[in-house]
Design a protein around this nucleic acid. Structure first.
Length: 347
DNA sequence: AAAACGGGGGG
DNA sequence: CCCCCAGTTTT
């Protein structure tokens, strides 16, 4: 066992986080937790994990559930393809593995939504298999302790970190080691203001001794943010309201929204009014605007409430939703925010 | 190899 | 305002 592993496990013993998914050896629950926690903070994911385990205690229950129901429980968590993959993978397991969660790394890796990180996590946590996982914590801890300056978002960097991680792994205690390095990254070797005075590696840490903590790990890609304006037409009569489902190749695939147009700024095109003919209630300025910050874009949503005596016909795209049933549909956060404020006035 | 994919928290 | 979070899939 490497000195690094030894020190890490010594730190872990009295300092480990007590998290719900650590209390089980059930590969299904571990898988569930790992999918939920992808690019998601523990505090944000935990209530979703508890809700999913409660509603779908077994792989079979999850596989039998309709996708809509799973998406509804996922609502608000983001990266909704994770919920679709979760559903697909559960069916995969029922059909190809006879309902038993696969217990080898290559088989686990085949599951939809499971990449190298998640496969290593499940393989080690559920079955004690000797696969070192590499997540954001691992990149940070290794980059700092060993002073690795290869960019973590490069192909070469990823490969390099995976090799180092696998080398350092305590293969007889893979689960413990993998848990330990993540807890250590989350509690001590934090992205900003790491607790170097409590760190067992402080005497040898390259980042600390060479004052490179802010500089490590190295990332090269810069995020470009675009601004988008969505104009939503909240068209309703006494009992119904028009909604439609978002298509793929854009954010919020499969989620619902109101009929809309997208423009380059906050103003509605002049000809928009003609779409609604003589309707006087459509103002060219919205009554309600909400902003949503995403990683790669800023979404401005403008809502125009239009009450009609009779609604345009339903078609393959637009659905006449019953107002009272509106909460059964899955909406993006920004629509949800709007509905929280306005639903009571619309019904 | 790069871009897309949500939402929230921290500095 | 920018970065990060128990990353994976698509382009």
């Amino acid at each position: 066992m490497s000195t690094f592993s030894k020190k890490l496990l010594q730190w872990y013993n009295p300092n480990e986080r007590n998290l719900p998914w650590k209390q089980t050896n059930d590969a299904y629950k571990i898988w569930l937790s790992e999918i939920i926690l992808q690019q998601t903070r523990v505090a944000q994911g935990t209530p979703y994990y508890l809700a999913f385990v409660k509603k779908y205690p077994t792989i079979s229950k999850l596989a039998k559930a309709p996708l809509d129901e799973i998406l509804k429980l996922w609502e608000g968590l983001g990266y909704y393809s994770r919920a679709r993959n979760l559903h697909q993978a559960s069916i995969q397991i029922m059909e190809k593995h006879n309902g038993h969660f696969p217990n080898t790394y290559p088989e686990i890796l085949q599951l939809k939504g499971v990449g190298k990180y998640t496969a290593a996590a499940i393989a080690s946590f559920a079955y004690g298999l000797p696969y070192a996982l590499v997540d954001g914590n691992v990149y940070r801890v290794l980059a700092r302790v060993f002073g690795i300056e290869i960019p973590i978002d490069s192909t070469l960097g990823k490969k390099h970190f995976e090799e180092i991680a696998q080398q350092l792994l305590d293969k007889d205690n893979a689960a413990l080691y993998n848990q330990a390095i993540m807890d250590f990254g989350a509690l001590v070797c934090k992205p900003s203001n790491p607790l170097c005075n409590q760190c067992p590696f402080s005497s040898t840490c390259i980042a600390l001794t060479q004052d490179k903590i802010q500089h490590l790990p190295v990332k090269t890609k810069k995020i470009t943010k675009t601004t988008r304006h969505f104009h939503y037409f909240v068209i309703h009569n006494t009992a119904h309201i028009l909604i439609q489902q978002r298509m793929q190749n854009d954010i919020w695939h499969g989620l619902f929204e109101f009929p809309m147009i997208e423009t380059i700024d906050h103003t509605l095109p002049n000809d928009t009014k003609s779409i609604f003919g003589s309707n006087k209630k459509l103002s060219t300025t919205s009554s309600f605007s909400f902003k949503q910050e995403l990683t790669h874009q800023t979404i401005h949503a403008h809502f125009y409430e239009i009450k009609l005596s009779s609604l345009p016909r339903q078609n393959t795209v637009v659905i006449h939703a019953i107002k009272r049933d509106l909460t059964k549909y899955v909406f993006p956060k920004i629509i949800h925010s709007y509905l929280q404020v306005r639903l009571i006035y619309l019904t």
